[in-house]
Write a protein that binds this DNA or RNA. Sequence first.
DNA 1: TCTGGGGTCCTAGGACCC
DNA 2: TCTGGGGTCCTAGGACCC
Length: 428
Amino acid sequence: MNQVIALVDVDSMYASVELLFRPDLHGRPVVVCSNNDGAIITRNLPAKALGIKMGEPLFKVQHLVQEKGLVIFSSNTTLYGDLSRRMMITLESFAAEIEEYSVDEAFLTLPGGSHKGALEELGREIKARVYKDVGLPVSVGLSTTKTLAKLASRAAKKYPKTVGVVDLTDPIRQRKLLSITDVSDVWGVGSKLTKRLRALGIHTAMDLAESDPKDIRARFSVMLERTARELAGVRCTELETAPESQQQIVCSRSFGSRVTDKSSLNEALASFTATATERLRKQARVAKSLTIFIRTSPFSNDPRYSNSLTAELPYPCDDTSIFLGRVRVMLNKIWRDGYRYAKAGVMLSDFYDPSHLQVDLFNDQPQNGKRDTVMRLMDQINGETRGALRFGSQGQRNQVAPRWQMNQSFLSPRYTTRFSDLPIAKIR
DNA sequence: TCTGGGGTCCTAGGACCC
DNA sequence: TCTGGGGTCCTAGGACCC
């Protein structure tokens, strides 16, 4: 039998993690916010039942705290990342190949089942093991292509009768599910494509699976062609077990409050730059291109302004201070007085492997030795205590939180990554 | 007052080359 | 009157995902 692809993903991951450490909240509606406590990005089942929508602004649901006992959490990315890491370790024990697709889901390749029902049993075993090892509820979708496995896991979440596991390797079962699935629920089909597909009379996943792939390619793109083929059971994408190195690093934030002075904005950009370059060094890469952007809120009635600027460095590097010098100059060029800035960001791109760099005849080369040591030492110390060492342009520490700092009013403890935050079990 | 952040891939079109 | 054509590279923008 053919190899089988499984998609394992955590049910409402962020909410499930928060509940894992707060069993007292069991049964209550729980939501987790985006950064800055702006919008709702995760809801558990009771919260969904209250009609809270994905992406809904927090202020629109805040009345439900009083009325319905809604519990709100800020995004605790450190905590979710750590639980994700633990889950991946458990999943690795089931499969030779694993693609960590996102923080809350992974594709696995599994040997095909030897008898009817064997695959479903394996799916249940995976689900049970993740729950035992990590404490998180997952859904498991099994099929022969990634797109079908995605569809299967979606069905495993949607239909309670499946109890979280769907084996979609059987073609008859495939057709049945495809015909009751709206095309907009297919992986890779967003709102724009849905609209265009509907205009062609393609409404269900089945319609797409049965369409002529060549025609789809001509009208849309190779991406959608692949999707259509995968729905029909033809494997077009393999697992990415050793992902390509990243193409860009972005660090951007909406501000906690509007920023109206240049020095504050520079502080924010400097902090984003420090974070981005730290990530760059972690990946052992050097970057040649730097982009900054600043903008006002697109939602308010304030006068609008948005601008960005990209600079090429004379040579690729990973030294924070080099980038910081550029950021200041670039901000001077795009800063305009009189606006209430809501968001800014820094992007690094055009990466190189530092061990394969060309020597530049016409530009001074960086004096790498000393700077390298400084950066490495800084990363080491900051790795132990976040934010212990900072550049002057990032602003003072231990003062009142700067205006640009994001809001995290409902942040839970870092239960698993800080000694002072370890949960305490009370035994009666 | 209050609407996320971090990615990827593809395509069209312009610049440039011979 | 009559103004090449094909290939490649780059970039901006669109669409998607979680």
